[in-house]
């Protein structure tokens, strides 16, 4: 395990300097929208707010590969000095370690979400200058001051742009905007996860494939109690799914939250959850980029809800 304070100081310095925990300017890695067609903002439209989470997964994977090698070694203590490097230098190093295939894959999920929202007739728009990292990792790690300052910046910027309705794509950002921002910044946005906006004239036959098994992220399952949303989408499309014993409000954590301070602990928790899911002998579907990347690491056949639904509605 790394010294948590070293990790917190590094992440907080990155957020202060680049508004995200990776030290890479958002313009460098938030590029998915360039291939997503145009967006027109009409009165009453909701802002699609990705929180930069799907785009960040290839960067998180690169960081974790590096941290896994470092954890427990005599070099681990030197991590504390990395915050003294300029964020741009840290960011360039990280960008060099990040795979193009990973970027394409996770950007593709955002393209699919956009396509599904359009097909459902949801009123939404996107603008990269209104899309920020939510600050959730600072909150989770206990950097309350850092989180509040960042959240206030995001809240103020969105209000300046007249945003009142928000569509989110991942549970971490949804939780931050729905529960934490109102508490810590007084924000009053109407926040909905994208799957609650999906409505299709569905082909009645389903996809003729065996059922998938669902992995509920902790934040949707327990904190936000939104596990029914993805199930409603699948039911409406006649796509079959099964649940494992630990699902919904009692879902098991995949271990992802431990990744930043202890990749080894993450692996331990992940192995247990992977075992539970493997017992269902079915492809896994989840709706969180952190869970998705983590379960892939366990070698499970797993895909995002949007990918499954997008393929069916192609």
């Amino acid at each position: 395990m790394f010294n948590p304070q070293d990790i917190i100081d590094l992440l907080a310095a990155n957020v202060r300097q680049t508004r995200n925990p990776f030290g890479v300017p958002a313009s460098k890695f938030n590029t998915w929208w360039k291939d997503a067609g145009g967006f027109t903002r009409r009165p009453g439209d909701a802002l699609l707010f990705t929180g930069l989470m799907y785009q960040a997964i290839p960067y998180i994977e690169a960081t974790t590969r590096y941290l896994e090698r470092l954890e427990g070694s005599s070099w681990a203590g030197y991590l504390r000095y990395s915050r003294f490097l300029p964020a741009s230098l840290r960011g360039r190093g990280l960008a060099a370690l990040t795979s193009a295939a990973g970027k394409k894959k996770f950007n593709g999920i955002l393209h699919t979400i956009c396509r599904l929202l359009k097909k459902s007739g949801a009123g939404f728009f996107y603008h990269p200058e209104m899309d920020f990292y939510s600050g959730i990792l600072l909150y989770d790690l206990g950097d309350q001051d850092g989180f509040i300052k960042h959240a206030q910046f995001v809240d103020k910027t969105l209000k300046l742009h007249g945003v009142s309705k928000i569509i989110t794509v991942d549970p971490h950002t949804t939780y931050a905007l729905k529960e934490l921002y109102p508490k810590y910044t007084g924000a009053t946005f109407e926040v909905q996860p994208y799957f609650s906006q999906l409505q299709f004239q569905a082909p009645a036959a389903g996809n003729g494939k065996p059922p998938v098994v669902l992995h509920d992220p902790c934040l949707y399952g327990r904190y936000l109690q939104l596990s029914e949303g993805p199930r409603r989408v699948l039911k409406n499309l006649n796509l079959e799914y099964v649940d494992v014993r630990n699902c919904g409000e009692f879902t098991s954590c995949c271990g992802g939250p431990a990744e930043s301070v202890s990749p080894a602990l993450n692996r331990e928790i992940l192995a247990r959850r992977a075992g539970e899911l493997k017992a269902a002998a079915a492809p896994v579907v989840t709706f969180c980029p952190i869970c998705l990347a983590n379960l892939l690491k366990a070698g499970l056949p797993v895909e995002d809800l949007a990918s499954l639904v997008g393929r069916h509605m192609a």
């Binding site: 395990m1 948590p4 989770d140 206990g142 902790c218 327990r222 939250p257 431990a258 202890s262």
Partner: peptide, 16 residues
């Protein structure tokens, strides 16, 4: 024992 606090996954099962 402060380091142990950061082992917590914040999964919420204990609270639930």
């Amino acid at each position: 024992q402060a380091e142990d606090l950061w082992r917590c996954l914040h999964c919420g099962l204990c609270t639930q």
